[in-house]
């Protein structure tokens, strides 16, 4: 299965609506990097509202996406992380320190705009 990636001006928007298995997560990583390269996007919002579980593997993939995107010149913001998911991440000892988050898609876009204007 593939996660659709939409382009809006200089940004890419992703809403993860399916259960993230390992294969899907890896495919998403690859697709997103390709899309950043093709489109020259400077920011990406990944909405995780529908994601009910993030385990250590998926957390690693998502964390890597941020670092890789950054190398390509794009900032990533995650939005809509469920309370239960944030609690299990802490139990796992995963703090996603370098990862930007916001409440929802709209706030995510606002955050990206601010970050990019600061530069």
């Amino acid at each position: 299965m593939r996660i659709p990636i939409l382009k809006l001006q200089d940004y890419l928007l992703v809403s993860v609506q399916i259960e993230l298995d390992d294969q899907t997560a890896m495919q998403f990583q690859e697709d997103l990097l390709n899309k950043i390269h093709e489109s020259g996007a400077t920011g990406v919002v990944v909405d995780l509202t529908s994601v009910e579980i993030i385990d250590s593997f998926i957390a690693k993939v998502l964390g890597d996406v941020v670092s890789m995107a950054e190398l390509m010149g794009a900032k990533v913001v995650f939005t809509g992380i469920q309370p239960a998911v944030s609690m299990t991440l802490i139990d796992l000892g995963i703090h996603l320190k370098n990862v930007q988050t916001a409440l929802d898609l709209e706030q995510g876009l606002v955050k990206l705009k601010q970050e990019l204007e600061e530069k």
């Binding site: 579980i53 385990d55 250590s56 469920q82 239960a84 609690m87 299990t88 139990d91 796992l92």
Partner: peptide, 17 residues
């Protein structure tokens, strides 16, 4: 609870992987 369901599902995911 929803949170404990998520904890359980996450633990299973780690062990199964």
């Amino acid at each position: 609870s929803t949170v404990d369901q998520a904890r359980i599902a996450t633990a299973i995911s780690e062990l199964a992987r």
